[in-house]
Amino acid sequence: MVEAFAVASGKGGTGKTTSTLALGMALAEDHDVTVVDADTGMANLLFHAGLNDATVTLHDLLVEGADATVDDAVYDRFGMRVVPCGTSLAAFQAADPERLRDVVATLAADADVLLLDSPAALGSKSAVLPVVLADRTVVVLQPTIPALSDGLKVQEYARSYGTETAGTLFNRVRDDGGIDRVIDRAERYFGGETLGVVPESDDARSARAAGEPLLAHAPDSPASRAFREAASRLSVRDGASGTVADRFRSAVVPDDV
């Protein structure tokens, strides 16, 4: 079985990459999890996962005529399979986003859960592809007007492609907010359930600096506990991996960016 989730937010700074790796590590306790940095234009997952020195990344798989295999770009880290993306602008420009579907289809064969760390943007084909290809989205929000507004937009984009919202995650929440009153109202508009409320945490910053996912760096911090609880609310649906792979391969994606 495999289900692909796009971890998305319309706005940067919501802690999407931290969330992706945290959900991935928590889900990896019961599932085979593969995490892909699908933010090919602003990749940063490699820094969070201590893969700064990765020799082969997703970029190498997206370039026409590349001789790297998907396996070359997969790194076993923190109980997950991690596919980082490089940060070179030239490599991004040379990359053919169409190839992402083949890469994801190949990865689907060996995973229960695929998490696609998606770009905090909707302005290009490569930015939108993760929500086009995923089964469902996890929308990462903050209790602010810009974050909620952009979260609504990314949800509508995803729904336009038949990708429903699995749930929302309120991240970087400060102590003094009336978060429950915000959640009560937000739930009217967002699909799925509110998976969790993750407090703002210095641990997330120090984890990033240490090149470790939050759950590895500070497993007992309130933020880590909240992420684990959120992951436990995310019920993974059974999908035959062959079906998912076929769906990715047959997604209609022409080659001009």
């Binding site: 609504l152 937009k153 509508e156 984009y157 336009s160 492609y161 038949g162 994606v253």
Partner: peptide
């Protein structure tokens, strides 16, 4: 206001799907 944001996003998604050749993937 929320409905206006959503409606605008839906329209934008469809227009851009045409630009990017993703129309067949639309629901």
């Amino acid at each position: 206001q929320i409905e206006a944001i959503r409606e605008q996003a839906r329209e934008e998604a469809r227009t851009r799907a045409e630009e990017w050749g993703l129309t067949d993937a639309l629901e």
